[in-house]
Simulated scan of single mutants.
Amino acid sequence: MKIMILGSKGNIGNYLSNYLTNQHEIIPLDKNDLDITDKNSVLQTIKSSSPDIVIQAAGLSDIDFCESHETESYTVNTLGTLNVAYACNTLSIPIVYISSAYVYGGEKPSPYFETDKCSPINIYGKSKLAAEKLIRTICSKYFIIRTSWCFGGNDCYIKKALSQANAPIFLISDAIINPTYIEDLCNSISQIITSDFYGVYNCVNDGYTSKQEVINYVFDYFNIQKNVLPLSTETIKNIAPRPKYTAMNTCLLYNCFNIKMPSWQDSITHYLDTIVNSTQ
C-alpha cells in the first residue's frame, strides 16, 4: 500500500512513518514539503503522488499556543484539514485523521463513547472538532482516530519528566485522561487502514488516571524517590482551559477490528523497559 503521511516530522507522524515503512511505501511530507492551507497545492500533490490512503497528522498541537492564536489554529487545523479532505474525496482516497480527546468537553462522569456529545472548551479542541465535522460532511471514506496524551517517540513527556528528576515537577492532578503508547496507536492504525469500516474511533490505552499518577508510576519503576506536586486546574492562569475528564471507551475499536488495547500500566512498563534496554 502507498501511504502519504502529512505532518511526518511531528511526533505521531514521524513514528507512523517509521512504523509503517517495513510493510508499505511511505510518502512522508512535512510543512516544508506541503502547506496544507494551500488548497490547490494539496490537491495537486496528492493527485500526482496517487497514494492509496492519506494520513492527516499535520497541524498545531500546542494547546496554549492555539488558545492565543485562534485564527492560525482554525486556519491550519480546520481549513488545512478541509483541504486534505476535499482532495481525498475528489480523488476517492480514504483519509485517516488524527484527532484528540479534547473534542470532548469533560462534563461526563464516565468514559466517553464516540457517539457522545462533543463540546470542547479550548480552541485546540474546537479546531479539531470542526475539522472532524468537515471530514464527515464531505468524505465518504474516512477514519477519525481520537487519541490522548501519547507517550513515546522523540517528543515524549515521560522522557522530559525523567530528565527533570532532580527538579520540582508540578502536574495538574484533577484532570483524568487515558495515557496512550504511541506504538499501540500506530499498531492500531496499521490494522484499521486495511479495512473499509469507516467511522470515528477512540484509540487509547485501557484504563484512565491522572497525569500526576502517570509520572508517579514512572518514578516508581526507576525507584526514584520524588514527589510530583499536584496542581488544580483552577490554580493555573493564562493557559488554555483543560477538560477535567476525557477518559474514553474503546469498545468500538474492539468490536470492529478485534483490537484490544493494553492497559496504560502495561504499556508504560513496556516503554520504560525499552529505555532501560537501549542504555545497556
Score class of each variant (00 low, 15 high):
Lys133Gln: 15
Glu107Leu: 13
Leu231Phe: 06
Ala247Lys: 11
Asn11Lys: 09
Phe222Asp: 09
Leu229Ser: 06
Cys203Gln: 13
Cys150Val: 13
Met261Glu: 10
Ile275Gln: 10
Lys260Leu: 06
Leu231Ser: 14
Ser210Gln: 13
Tyr86His: 13
Thr137Cys: 05
Glu132Val: 12
Ile93Ala: 01
Ala165Glu: 04
Phe170Ala: 01
Asp184Arg: 00
Ser61Pro: 00
Val276Thr: 14
Asn22Val: 03
Ile275Gly: 04
Asn255Glu: 15
Tyr254Trp: 05
Gly207Tyr: 11
Pro262Asn: 14
Glu114Lys: 13
Val103Gly: 09
Arg146Asp: 03
Pro51Leu: 13
Ile5Trp: 01
Asn18Ala: 01
Asp196Asn: 13
Ser263Pro: 08
Cys66Phe: 01
Lys159Ile: 09
Ile5Lys: 04
Ser188His: 00
Asn77Ile: 14
Ala131Gly: 10
Ala58Arg: 07
Leu272Tyr: 10
Asn32Lys: 15
Tyr221Glu: 13
Thr37Trp: 04
Thr137Arg: 09
Leu134Val: 14
Asp64Glu: 11
Glu70Ile: 12
Pro179Gln: 06
Asp155Lys: 05
Ser48Cys: 06
Ile144Glu: 01
Glu114Phe: 10
Asp35Met: 09
Ser140Ala: 07
Thr274Cys: 11
Gly105Cys: 07
Leu20Ile: 06
Ile36Ala: 04
Lys141Ile: 06
Asn89Leu: 09
Thr115Glu: 12
Val54Asn: 01
Lys226Gln: 06
Gly125Phe: 01
Thr90Ile: 02
Asn249Thr: 09
Arg146Val: 08
Lys159Glu: 08
Asp155Trp: 03
Ser92Phe: 00
Thr75Leu: 10
Tyr245Ser: 15
Leu16His: 01
Leu252Pro: 02
Gly207Phe: 07
Asn83Ile: 08
